[in-house]
Nucleic acid binder design. Structure first.
Length: 303
DNA sequence: TGCCAGGGCTGGG
DNA sequence: CCCAGCCATGGC
């Protein structure tokens, strides 16, 4: 009996789909008419939140949904993760602000390339650059009627053949040579991204950091978002802000002390905790800046 | 308009 | 070890 279908329902609780797909860990999801459209493993897919869980629509019939469950990590019981968080005020506030936020399990190359692009870029811009990269160097994937043309994320092999100028034309700026070099290393087999799964966190981190343009932060993002190393704790400007304002409001600790803190304080799912802090800092309303009075127009533009 | 963005590398104390 | 300056680019 063939049970292939283009629709299914993943029954899962405590899953905030919008927050998860739009939380700066993946950069290709777009919301349209209340549903989220994206590409996973070269397949177009549409996801929408329902009271039962996540409704799924694909273009081609699917026999086995395990690739999707793996990407969404829908079998994780969120409560068992949250219960390992430290019981302090910042974590309570962060979890309360966005119950249901999850970590995805992405493709390593797409994740690595995307975060190499991410440095000193706003999330909106990262999305633009990744979109350009896909349009120009990705392969078209089948889509339903009316969804336009959608492209897969370009493989390392493909990017290894393009020029630095072509990458700069995707608004990559100074990151272009690094992304190109990484694509060539991966395509040539000098770095085997699949092999990293079998290594320890530290060993895998060391391999990633051999790439120019990949420091501790980007390596940790890939370890966390693509490989599922839950201890990995990326510290970007937002998480740094959270650490400083919420944990060390009096005196900012030096890098040494701060590093020790994040490695010891957040428990076995530190990376998950990090994602809650990140989301909390980015979405909470700005500090008490008085709301502009309706009548007070913004400073009259002098000529 | 200027500040800042899911940083990393280099060179100087 | 710690820090400043630099690297492109565009959002707000």
């Amino acid at each position: 009996m063939d049970s292939a279908a283009c629709r299914t329902l993943l029954s899962v609780r405590d899953y905030n789909l919008a927050a998860t797909l739009d939380s700066g860990q993946a950069f290709r999801w777009a919301e349209r008419n209340g549903a989220w459209e994206g590409v996973i493993d070269g397949r177009w897919i549409q996801l929408s939140q329902t009271s039962e869980g996540i409704a799924v629509q694909t273009c081609a019939p699917v026999h086995d949904w395990c690739w999707l469950e793996r990407y969404l990590q829908s079998d994780i019981v969120l409560g068992s993760v949250l219960s390992t968080f430290p019981d302090d005020q910042p974590m309570r506030a962060s979890v309360a602000a966005c119950r249901g936020l999850r970590l995805l399990r992405q493709d390593p190359w797409e994740c690595l390339a995307s975060f190499m692009i991410s440095s000193t870029k706003q999330i909106v811009q990262i999305r633009q650059i990744v979109a350009l990269l896909c349009e120009r160097f990705g392969a078209p994937v089948p889509t339903p009627e009316g969804c336009g043309t959608v492209f897969s994320f370009p493989t390392a092999e493909r990017l290894a053949t393009v020029s630095e100028a072509e990458l700069r034309a995707c608004k990559m700026g100074f990151r272009a040579p690094n992304v190109l070099a990484a694509a060539r290393e991966v395509a040539a087999g000098n770095i085997d991204l699949n092999r990293l799964r079998s290594l320890s966190v530290q060993e895998a981190r060391d391999v990633l950091m051999q790439l120019r343009g990949v420091g501790e932060k980007i390596a940790n993002c890939v370890l966390l978002f693509a490989y599922g190393f839950q201890q990995a704790f990326p510290v970007d400007v937002w998480v740094m802000k959270a650490l400083r304002e919420l944990y060390f409001p009096r005196r900012a600790p030096g890098p040494r002390r701060l590093r020790h803190f994040v490695e010891t304080h957040f428990g076995p799912n530190a990376g998950y905790a990090q994602q809650y802090l990140f989301h909390y800092m980015r979405t909470r309303q700005p500090r008490t800046r008085p709301a502009p009075h309706p009548a007070s127009t913004r400073r009259a533009r002098s000529r």
